[in-house]
């Protein structure tokens, strides 16, 4: 890059650069300065010293966290919730898309699709309100479970430790499965129909066609979605957790992000909670890079 190039570029494009100033400022202030703010995680924060003047304590916050009673519980809850969400909520939209794709009545397909997207647009507060209502002492699901003998007597299921995870995971399936299927339906509509004709001539049945044509055709979409999901593995939907958990279910429900919120925002323990949050972000980043690497190596599909 020569100086004359820079001058020429400036002369021609300076008005675009002026246009970009607010954008750059926004990202510096609300994305990059917080990244620098991670130093908080290495400080014993005191309101008087502030971010710059508080005592530097090295990795004490981290070692405190790793050796605390919470570490095991939070890591276990976070991993169990996210992995079980993934095992159930990742394939569900793919299966739904495949089933929808088999419907021959276009009108019926359209109606089912439209209805199944709907829960996605209802706010998480309302969803949780409905969950609380349905699983309450006199709720619809509690009553159903008593009737089919799943539980012995009616009780408020959200105060039951072992009930939190299934309620959390399956309510997310319910809310997201329809909307999640859109992207796969789009991929399915792009599959070359001639492949199916050729397979039929070769005598492949419906099941074989699905295994050998449909799934390979949409696999790039599936892999991209999987990478994105794994990169967010530790980001359990905190907004839903803090609506549904209660002190009696912290044992199974409290996750890293909800802990950061409680310790940081509600209790003002900024240094410690920044360290915990940083641990979360780093693990996420590593997981994203790792899956992307594995995927690029074995399937030639990758994010970057």
């Amino acid at each position: 890059m020569r100086l004359t190039d820079i001058k020429k570029d400036w002369a021609r494009n300076k008005s675009v650069y002026f246009l970009a100033i607010p954008i750059v400022l926004y990202f510096i202030i609300w994305s990059y300065i917080p990244m620098v703010g991670i130093v908080l995680g290495f400080e014993d924060y005191s309101p008087r010293g502030g971010v710059l003047g508080s005592e530097f304590v090295g990795i004490k916050n981290f070692t405190d966290f790793f050796s605390s009673y919470y570490f095991g519980r939070l890591l276990r809850n976070t991993i169990i919730l996210s992995v079980s969400s993934m095992i159930i909520n990742f394939p569900a939209p793919i299966i739904l898309a495949l089933l929808l794709n088999e419907l021959e009545n276009k009108m019926f397909k359209k109606v089912v699709q439209t209805i199944s997207y709907m829960p996605y647009f209802v706010s998480v507060v309302v969803i949780c309100g409905i969950i609380i209502d349905f699983f309450a002492y006199d709720g619809a699901f509690t009553e159903l479970f008593v009737r089919i003998g799943l539980i012995k007597e009616a009780k408020d299921l959200l105060s039951v430790k072992s009930a939190f995870r299934p309620i959390f995971v399956f309510s997310s399936t319910w809310q997201g499965v329809g909307y999640g299927s859109i992207i796969y339906l789009a991929a399915l509509s792009g599959v070359d129909q001639e492949l199916y004709e050729a397979a039929k001539i070769d005598g492949a049945g419906r099941w074989k066609q699905m295994l050998h044509i449909t799934l390979p055709s949409i696999s790039p979409t599936i892999i991209i979605m999987l990478i994105l999901l794994v990169g967010n593995l530790l980001n359990v939907a905190m907004e839903k957790v803090i609506l549904l958990y209660r002190p009696v279910t912290y044992e199974t429900a409290d996750v890293i992000s909800s802990f950061v919120y409680r310790r940081g925002i509600q209790e003002g323990d900024y240094g410690y909670s920044t360290a915990v949050g940083l641990f979360n972000s780093i693990v996420n980043l590593l997981l994203l890079l790792l899956t992307n690497y594995i995927s690029r190596k074995y399937s030639e599909t990758s994010l970057f």
Binding site: I23, F27, S31, P34, V36, G37, V260, G264, I265, T274
Partner: peptide, 22 residues
Amino acid sequence: YLLLIIMLTMFFNGGLIPTYMV
């Protein structure tokens, strides 16, 4: 480079508390 500045924030961020402090 602006594109890069923007894209990088997808992969890493300061987190809840530092953003709150800002």
